Computed example of a mutant assay.
Amino acid sequence: MPRYALKIEYDGRPFVGWQRQPDLPGVQAAVERAIAKLDPVGPEITGAGRTDAGVHATEQVAHVDLSRDWDPYRLGQAINAHLRPHPVAVVAVGPVSDDFHARFSAMERRYLFRLVSRGSPLVHDRGFAWRVRHELDVEAMREGAAFLIGKHDFTAFRSSLCQAKSPVKTLDEIRIVESDYAGGVEFRFYLRARSFLHNQVRSIVGTLERVGSGAWEPERVGAALASRDRAQCGPVSPPDGLYLTGVDYPENPFAASNGAWPGEGGV
């Protein structure tokens, strides 16, 4: 059975998360129902990461085994036709080898979190960014973030429901970019790691927001990490501003199209 990699983007607001759940709207189930219209086997798909309810993706990656060969472009367009009206789209398809696994073959995952500081409620970005009313000190947040870079036991920054076998992870980067935003300031948190724990990114951002507000000293982030105590972590930020933005593999599964449909620019 030929295997295909799918690059998928979605608005997470209508869904309970990526993972298929009985009688609840999951992104995985929506894509599987669309593919079932095309393939009599009714195949299951496997994603690179299990995003939570309300979390978005610009580059989730999944793989699927089909009963016949497809032209990648036609397969993507056929899936998209059956995905309507869900806010989900397949943006690239690539044929891959039988040993490619969207989750276990991944070498790196990247997340973006958008945080907006302004007095007025968000309108166009409502549900797509976390808004706080107070000002934030970006340099203090960067100082606090530095304690988290590298290999650590992140017990304090993971959900009590996390099913990972080990809390030890290596966080390769936290980069915080400040930019103008109408009536305020936007802060973008870029995080890179091979893998993340459940709620790890949202716990990190929620903690750094406390530092930026002045409620925490930057050094308290290091103390919370060292405590290995969930109660010492800052609050978990809402899912609104979180996006899965990329998954890297030893070889690019979308190299043939450079991640783009015919007639579009490459990524």
Rank of each mutant, 00 (worst) to 15 (best):
R114W: 01
D39R: 13
K7W: 06
G119S: 14
C162A: 14
G184A: 01
N252V: 01
G12R: 05
A182K: 15
V138R: 14
L24E: 11
V61S: 03
G47E: 05
I176H: 10
G49R: 09
W70E: 05
D172G: 09
E178H: 00
A231N: 11
E186N: 03
A57D: 04
I176K: 11
A182D: 12
T58Q: 06
D153T: 14
W18Y: 07
S227H: 10
T170M: 01
H86Q: 13
D39S: 13
P2S: 08
G94I: 12
R110M: 05
R103V: 01
S117E: 03
S257Q: 11
A29P: 04
G212L: 01
G222A: 10
I35H: 06
G119C: 04
R50P: 05
R202T: 11
V221L: 12
H152R: 10
T46G: 05
N258W: 08
A29D: 09
A106W: 06
V90P: 07
G94H: 06
E173W: 07
E143L: 13
R109H: 04
Q200W: 00
D248Q: 03
V91K: 13
S117I: 10
A92R: 03
Q163R: 15
E178S: 00
D99F: 09
L225T: 15
S166W: 04
V221P: 13
F147A: 15
A193V: 13
D39G: 12
Q200A: 00
W70R: 14
G246L: 02
W216L: 14
P85G: 10
H134S: 00
H101Q: 06
H134C: 00
P235W: 03
G234K: 08
L115S: 12
R126N: 00
A226H: 12
P40Q: 06
P253M: 02
R175N: 09
E143A: 15
V93T: 13
I8D: 04
R114I: 00
T245S: 05
S160P: 08
D125Q: 03
S166L: 14
Q28W: 08
A215S: 10
H152D: 06
P2W: 07
V90A: 04
V27Q: 01
T155V: 10
V31Y: 06
P218R: 09
P250C: 03
R109L: 09
G206P: 11
D23I: 06
V93S: 11
C233S: 15
G222V: 15
P253H: 02
D69K: 01
R210H: 02
L75E: 04
W216A: 12
G266N: 01
T58H: 08
A92T: 05
V88K: 04
R33W: 05
T207G: 14
W216Q: 08
R74A: 10
N258F: 06
G212N: 02
R194S: 00
V201P: 11
L244N: 08
E139R: 02
T245H: 02
G234C: 12
R192D: 07
